[in-house]
């Protein structure tokens, strides 16, 4: 019985079926574990290994410069915004900045298909959760950390970005946009 004291000697040999199960389970656990490092070599989707501490001032300077330099202009030379958020078209393969703030993703990025970008992700007030629909790509944006995700968009279109970490009462209004041309 499970609720009474076992026989004096309970360290007994294991039966054949149990041995088979134990063997299968250990093999599967080893494979499922080893698969993760292996996927770093053979897979094209791996979590980033690059992040730095960043102060609010450093981050603000970086993003302001970035937006000033690359904000899109229309035919008559006016700066383009989308719902009051600057639209930015950085050169292919460059460093790009994406900021979570209550309750916007800032700015709207325009990327090119098949080009590789270093996306710097951070937040300035609360923790935010980057979530790109419909790809279901999710990363945390934390204040004080510059999290660099090296990203190659392989499909084009307009991709809404949601926030999926609770960041205050307006959390559900926090939607942004990523455009891939």
């Amino acid at each position: 019985m499970s609720i009474s004291v076992p026989d004096k000697v309970w360290w007994k040999p294991i039966d054949k079926e149990e041995k088979i199960w134990l063997f299968l389970a250990i093999i599967w656990m080893a494979i499922s574990f080893l698969w993760m490092p292996i996927y770093h070599f053979i897979g094209k989707q791996n979590p980033s290994n690059e992040s730095y501490r960043v102060t609010r001032e450093q981050w603000d300077t970086l993003t302001d410069d970035f937006i000033k330099k690359y904000q899109v202009k229309d035919a008559s030379g006016n700066l383009v915004t989308m719902n009051d958020i600057p639209v930015v078209h950085p050169p292919a393969g460059s460093d790009v900045y994406l900021e979570g703030r209550a309750w916007k993703w800032w700015p709207v990025l325009e990327l090119e298909k098949g080009k590789t970008y270093r996306v710097h992700l951070s937040a300035v007030d609360f923790q935010h959760g980057l979530s790109i629909y419909p790809l279901n790509i999710n990363y945390m944006a934390l204040p004080g950390y510059d999290y660099i995700i090296t990203m190659t968009p392989t499909t084009s279109g307009e991709f809404p970005i949601l926030c999926n970490e609770f960041c205050g009462i307006g959390h559900h209004t926090m939607v942004g946009k990523l455009i891939v041309k």
């Binding site: 989707q45 979590p47 279901n136 790509i137 999710n138 999926n164 970490e165």
Partner: peptide, 8 residues
């Protein structure tokens, strides 16, 4: 890796 498509 799968966590990228599951987190939060």
């Amino acid at each position: 890796q799968v966590n990228i498509t599951a987190h939060n």
